[in-house]
């Protein structure tokens, strides 16, 4: 997993609440066999509408999603997170996220930042008026900064540490290699094996 310390980028204001995972990535995309290539499925239905924010040329290359409240509700599909990342988003800001979506995001290194609705509103206004306005999400200082906005945010210490270090669950576990090896060495011989090695 890529480490997240601080990120600055242009933003996409998404003035919609209760965006569920079916809207983020529709079910028919779940038959794919990779974790990448979901970018075209992201908000697929809405993108058919030329006036949708993501379709505006000035939003190309934006990396910060400014979402409405209750973002990521619905099914537990990890594909929703992959789709946002594949598209190029590094962080999503909202006043409230669905629990499972948030868990999946942090597992995959997509930083979800919770800010009060007034602050999200201020960021919407700023980025709607000026598509070139940049938003900085600073995980070290736990702060979001933009022109006229400075807001602190919270994240539990364990999740923050893992993001700062770029540690996914697997690399964390691999740090316990001596313990795993010791356990393996002591395992009884009668335990089943699928193949002889």
């Amino acid at each position: 997993m890529e480490a997240f310390t601080t990120h600055t980028g242009r933003a996409v204001p998404l003035r919609r609440s209760n965006v569920d995972t079916d809207q983020i990535i529709p079910a028919h995309w779940l038959k794919k066999v990779t974790r990448d290539g979901f970018e075209d499925g992201l908000f697929e239905a809405w993108r058919k509408d030329p006036s949708f924010e993501l379709n505006q040329p000035e939003r190309a290359g934006a990396t910060v999603l400014l979402a409405g409240s209750d973002f990521g509700t619905g099914s537990s599909r990890e594909h929703a997170v992959w789709a946002l990342q594949n598209y190029g988003f590094k962080t999503v800001i909202s006043s409230r996220f669905a629990d499972i979506f948030r868990g999946n995001s942090l597992k995959n290194g997509l930083l979800t930042v919770v800010l009060p609705q007034e602050t999200v509103e201020a960021l919407w206004k700023l980025t709607e008026a000026d598509p070139d306005a940049e938003v900085t999400v600073d995980l070290v200082a736990r702060q979001v900064r933009a022109d006229g906005v400075t807001a602190e945010f919270e994240l539990d210490e364990n999740a923050r540490w893992r993001l700062l270090e770029g540690l996914d669950d697997i690399s964390l576990t691999l740090r316990q290699e001596p313990e795993i090896a010791a356990y393996e060495a002591a395992r009884p011989a009668f335990k089943p094996h699928t193949v002889q090695v």
Binding site: S76, E78, N104, K107, N108, D169, I170, L172, T173, L174, Q176, I180, E184
Partner: peptide, 16 residues
Amino acid sequence: IGTSQVEHVLATQTLP
């Protein structure tokens, strides 16, 4: 288990 956990078990033979 979920797909991330499948990967975790493949890589480490353990699960937190």
